[in-house]
Structure formats: C-alpha cells, structure tokens
C-alpha cells in the first residue's frame, strides 16, 4: 500500500491517468445507460406508479386530479358482478390452458422428439400461429365461427342440413370456450417450442441407459424424460398463467367482452369501463389489481415452485 502511494506520488502521471480512466469509465456508464433507463422509467415504471395514484381518485382523464375518494374505486370494483365475472373468466382461461393447452403441447413435443419424416415442417407449422397478430387470429376465428358462412356452421350443415347453425360467439354459454379454442390455436405453439428446446437439452444417453436397464419407452418417458423436463414445465405453467391474466386483443376482436359481458376479462373491462366511459381512476384501479395479482402470483410461484430452478440467479 505504502509502496503504491509512494509510486503514485513519485509518478504523478500515472495518478492523473488513473483518475482520468476512472472518470472516463463513469462517463461511459452514465452515457450508455441513461437513454435506456430514462425510456424504461418514463414508459414502464412511471405509468405503473401513476396507476396506483390515479386509482384513488374519481377522474375523467381531463382536468386536474381533485376528487380524492380513497379506496372507493376498489370497493365499487369488487361489488360489480361484471368485474367479478371478468376475474372468473381470466381464471377459467388459465385453468383450461393448464388442463388442455399445455398437456397437448407437451404431448406433441414428446411425439416429435424422435426421428421421423417432416419434423421440421411440423415444428414450423405448429409455431406459425404464434407470430400472427392476435387481432388477425381473432378475425380469422370470427370468420370460422360465423353462423352464415363460417367453417363450423358449414360442417354442421353437412351432418344436419336444415338446422339453424349455432352462433358460438353470440351465445353467453359458449362464447368463452369458443375464444379459448382460438387462444389454444394461437399460443400452444409457444409452449410446444419451449418443451422441444427443453427436450433437446436432455442427453440422449440417459434415455438409452434407462432403456438398456429394461425400461419400456413409456417408463423412460415418465421416469426419466418428464422429471428432467421439470424446470421447463414449471416455466411454461408460469408464463401461461401470467399470460392468461392479460388477454385483450383476441377477445376485443372476437366478442369485445360480450354478449352481455359473458367473455369480459380484466383487460377488456379496463378499456370498456375505464377508458371508454371516461373513468380513468376506476380503470386504473383495474390495472392496479391486475398488477398486484400478477406480482403476487409471480413472487409466490418463483419462491415456492420454481425455487430449485432459480438458484444462482438473483431472486426478484
């Protein structure tokens, strides 16, 4: 230590050089980070904070925030059967996804994880809908469900000519399930691709070893492959639930929450009852509830279920 100080003093050039280098490092850090941090703060973090702020006011979006009403917006929300229905719909979509969409994606990934003709073609096709705009998917499926010229109506007419074709999107009992089919069509490919990537990381020797030890191919799948795929499955469940809480585009196009609010989700409710009715405080409260639900779920899930997958990574 003494030595370096002496050296630095006796060679003032090195000292100033080091300061200059330190200074140029700090300037680089600041100049390089600032634009990103500023944009991220202004358009992502600040709105989230503002949502909490607006949500305790009655505010039409114009004029100043004057009408402070405390938690009345939240009270009103939890007393509104339409909003409760919206939450229920979000949960129903999440549950259906877990029960149908993800197992189907997993099964297909397992099927395709072997030598067979057309593998790349199938992979390309399965993932294709995911890159389409949800709006486009919504329009396509509106056409397919259309009672006068849609595919479903036409198919039913083939079997039962003369019957009035059902209007799935106009019936409160079927609308959400009809939308769910479109959701699966668009999103299962994403989970499929996650599983395929996960499967490729499992060394083939492990499966071979199990087979040599006398395991049937089903046993090898259940006792070797699936446990090793655990972290991927847990991740895909996580992303699926998080996504289910936020559907907007597809539903907006196919039913806009109707008929009679049967397919309302939190996101469509936020727009239909917040923005469209100039109740921005009220709408922001919906945003805050979504935020809290997502955050609580993410925290809980990562702490409890994904704990073993995240070791070595800073926790949120």
């Amino acid at each position: 230590m003494r030595f370096t100080i002496q050296k630095a003093v006796s060679h003032p050039g090195i000292f100033t050089q080091r300061i200059r280098r330190q200074w140029s490092r700090d300037v680089t850090i600041i100049l390089f980070l600032l634009p990103s941090v500023a944009l991220f703060f202004l358009f992502v973090v600040y709105p989230v904070i503002q949502a909490a702020h607006y949500s305790v006011y009655r505010w039409n979006g114009l004029g100043s925030l004057a009408d402070y009403i405390g938690f009345k917006n939240y009270q009103a929300l939890f007393q509104d059967p339409i909003f409760l229905q919206a939450i229920k719909n979000n949960i129903l979509i999440a549950v259906l996804s877990l029960l149908l969409q993800l197992p189907a994606a997993l099964l297909l990934a397992l099927l395709i994880n072997r030598k067979m003709p057309g593998r790349t073609f199938f992979r390309t096709v399965f993932f294709l809908p995911y890159v389409l705009a949800p709006v486009v998917t919504g329009l396509i499926w509106s056409f397919i469900y259309n009672p006068s010229n849609g595919l479903v109506a036409d198919l039913l007419r083939q079997f039962n000519p003369g019957a009035t074709p059902p209007a799935f999107l106009a019936d409160t009992r079927t609308v959400l399930y009809a939308i769910f089919v479109a959701i699966c069509w668009q999103y299962f490919g994403f989970h499929f691709v996650l599983y395929v990537a996960g499967l490729q990381n499992i060394p083939a020797e492990l499966i071979e070893a199990a087979r040599i030890d006398g395991a049937s191919s089903r046993q090898a799948t259940f006792y070797v492959t699936l446990p090793l795929l655990g972290s991927t499955i847990r991740l895909s469940v996580f992303l699926s639930i998080l996504g289910s809480l936020q559907y907007f585009d597809l539903i907006y196009v196919m039913s806009n929450g109707g008929p009679v609010n049967a397919s309302e989700t939190m996101a469509t409710y936020q727009i239909n009852y917040g923005l469209q009715r100039f109740a921005l405080g009220y709408g922001s409260a919906v945003g805050v509830i979504m935020f809290v639900l997502c955050f609580a779920f993410a925290l809980l899930y990562q702490r409890v279920i994904m704990r073993q997958d995240l070791s070595g990574r800073p926790a949120l």
Binding site: P47, V48, A51, Q246, F295, A298
Partner: peptide
C-alpha cells in the same frame, strides 16, 4: 419489466 406487459398500466401510459 418482463413480468408486466403493457396491459397492466395502459391507461396511465395513455395519459403519459
């Protein structure tokens, strides 16, 4: 930010 897509704070974002 990975956890929260646009939907969550879209009304305040609109105001911004």
């Amino acid at each position: 930010g990975l956890l929260f897509p646009l939907t969550v704070a879209v009304l305040p974002l609109y105001i911004t």
